[in-house]
């Protein structure tokens, strides 16, 4: 589903990748581990076309990522970055902003669904009306994750989604991921030994 093939990338002074390859198959659950600064988030950025490797190819759903395919590829991926920015309004506004994008208008994503998802992700029910600026980093990530789920994408790329969460909230995130269905593909950047039932991709 996602393939990084013979990737070389240097950012500034740091050589992040030199002929590096990995792949995630359709329906697979993968955890990506590595020391900080090893390029874990950069893998996601490359899959989304925000960072271009110096050499090598990125393929998503069988197609190489190019200027022409990048738009469609992005619409197959749900991405929860480590630091989530959702504008300066409320969660409700952030939700409506995303739903209003032309590409998402065919989706049927209602406020009720959003509220239900936030609740399943162990967020208090008032979260929906709260200004994003009042939310913690972990709460914002879960809001972004809820939006991502409602977009019904095939691939989920989550960047340390549970790093800031207590065990209860972590379990909630995990449950929602487990319920996504066997045809969805999930790659999660994790610290430590959590979620060892996911196949590991290690970065050195």
């Amino acid at each position: 589903m996602i393939e990084w093939r013979d990737i070389s990338l240097q950012l500034g002074e740091t050589r992040l990748f030199a002929g590096w390859s990995a792949r995630v198959s359709k329906g697979e659950r993968v955890r990506i581990r590595g020391r900080s600064g090893a390029g874990k988030s950069t893998l996601f950025q490359m899959a989304l076309g925000f960072v271009e490797p110096d050499a090598g190819t990125v393929r998503v759903a069988g197609r190489p990522l190019t200027d022409d395919t990048v738009g469609e590829i992005r619409r197959q991926i749900a991405w929860v970055p480590q630091t989530v920015e959702l504008g300066d309004g409320t969660v409700r506004q952030a939700f409506h902003d995303v739903v209003a994008f032309r590409a998402n208008q065919a989706l049927d994503a209602s406020e009720a669904q959003m509220r239900a998802l936030l609740e399943r992700l162990a967020l208090p029910s008032k979260t929906f009306e709260q200004p994003v600026s009042q939310l913690s980093g972990g709460e914002r990530q879960r809001v972004a994750f809820a939006i991502a789920v409602l977009l019904r994408r095939e691939i989920y790329l989550l960047d340390e989604p549970v790093a800031a969460l207590d065990p209860h909230a972590t379990a909630a995130v995990r449950r929602v991921l487990d319920d996504l269905g066997p045809e969805t593909t999930v790659a999660v950047i994790l610290h430590g030994d959590d979620w060892d039932d996911y196949r590991e991709i290690a970065l050195t």
């Binding site: 749900a78 991405w79 920015e85 504008g87 995303v98 994008f101 998402n104 977009l151």
Partner: peptide, 22 residues
């Protein structure tokens, strides 16, 4: 400098203009 929100909107399906609106 603050590409975070912009990239997130692009990833959520926004066109460039939609993502740049804020």
């Amino acid at each position: 400098a603050d590409a975070g929100g912009y990239h997130f909107r692009l990833a959520c399906g926004a066109t460039r203009t939609e993502a740049l609106r804020p």
